[in-house]
């Protein structure tokens, strides 16, 4: 491919190729402080390419490809090339990674123990993790958390945080502008802006953290806490995992161990401050 770059996030080494310079340049800026190891071969390949040759120049649009592709996926305009790269990277991990049980969850850690937050898009899991990661928590990731089947530990996947809509202004008020990527307005997922994780989160990305609290956040509505049983948490997490079935018995064992060892709660919160307070409250209770 004409342009390419290499990025390591947590245990996954990516190579990303592109027909255009812009998406690669944007990635290189977001991931400039991430560790680089040129001697390491890529686990996963992402390709950003023009579906038809003239689409390189004429209303340029980015098709997402790589080791795994979504059939019939619509291309994105070149101005959203960074989003295409992010989606391509997510796709390769979601469909291709087999070393760990993959949970669609954000996570933060403190003192070697972690809080996992699982929820659909719009639940606020990314925003909560990003906000906690600016406080005295280590951000582990806003999209995927990996569970090591052998140890039961959570492993980080601290890609650049994908902030959406209202969360953008909320974070922009708190962090240095150099840690924010370009604003991608009006994407199919709304407005998007990427946040570069703090240096300490990147430096610690290979350090496992034992899961201590499992949350299923829901943004909107009055503050509420609902204790979830092991069975409920188990079923919700099978739905939040992209490789649970493919891992067979190892996946089942990792997940049953997780829900038996870790208390799980559904939480609702009207705003970020209330959400953060709930996390701290449940964390304090879980520590006892």
């Amino acid at each position: 491919m004409r342009h390419s770059t290499r990025i390591a996030v947590g245990p996954v080494q990516f190579r990303i190729g592109s027909d255009w310079r812009a998406p690669v340049a944007a990635l290189e800026r977001l991931y400039a402080a991430y560790p680089q190891d040129a001697a390491r071969p890529a686990d996963a390949t992402v390709r950003l390419f023009a579906a038809r040759p003239w689409r390189r120049w004429l209303r340029p649009s980015v098709q997402i490809g790589g080791d795994f592709v979504v059939p019939d996926a619509l291309p994105l305009p070149l101005s959203m090339g960074l989003l295409a790269a992010e989606m391509g990277m997510n796709l390769q991990v979601a469909l291709g990674w087999r070393r760990h049980l993959l949970l669609h969850a954000s996570a933060v850690a403190r003192d070697g123990r972690s809080v996992l937050m699982s929820g659909v898009s719009g639940s606020g899991k990314s925003t909560l993790a990003a906000l906690l990661g600016e406080g005295d928590w280590r951000l582990m990731g806003d999209e995927f958390t990996l569970i090591d089947p052998a140890s039961g530990d959570a492993l980080a996947f601290p890609r650049a945080v994908s902030l959406k809509n209202e969360a953008i202004a909320e974070m922009a008020a708190r962090v240095d502008a150099t840690r924010l990527g370009p604003l991608l307005a009006g994407t199919p997922k709304g407005d998007i802006c990427h946040l570069i994780p703090r240096a300490d989160a990147v430096a610690a990305m290979h350090e496992p953290a034992r899961p201590a609290l499992l949350l299923f956040p829901r943004f909107g509505g009055a503050t509420a806490i609902e204790r979830l049983g092991e069975g409920e948490a188990f079923v919700r997490l099978t739905e939040a995992s992209t490789n649970y079935t493919a891992l067979g018995e190892a996946g089942f064992e990792a997940l049953t161990r997780l829900v038996r060892a870790v208390p799980a709660f559904g939480i609702s919160y009207p705003d970020s401050a209330a959400g953060l307070a709930l996390v701290e409250q449940l964390w304090a209770e879980a520590e006892r």
Binding site: R15, A38, R40, P41, A42, T45, D67, G96
Partner: peptide, 14 residues
């Protein structure tokens, strides 16, 4: 070489 592996792994996956 590491770059050989990039290609081999990509082709093998494909």
């Amino acid at each position: 070489t590491p770059r050989d592996w990039d290609g081999v792994i990509g082709v093998a996956r494909a």
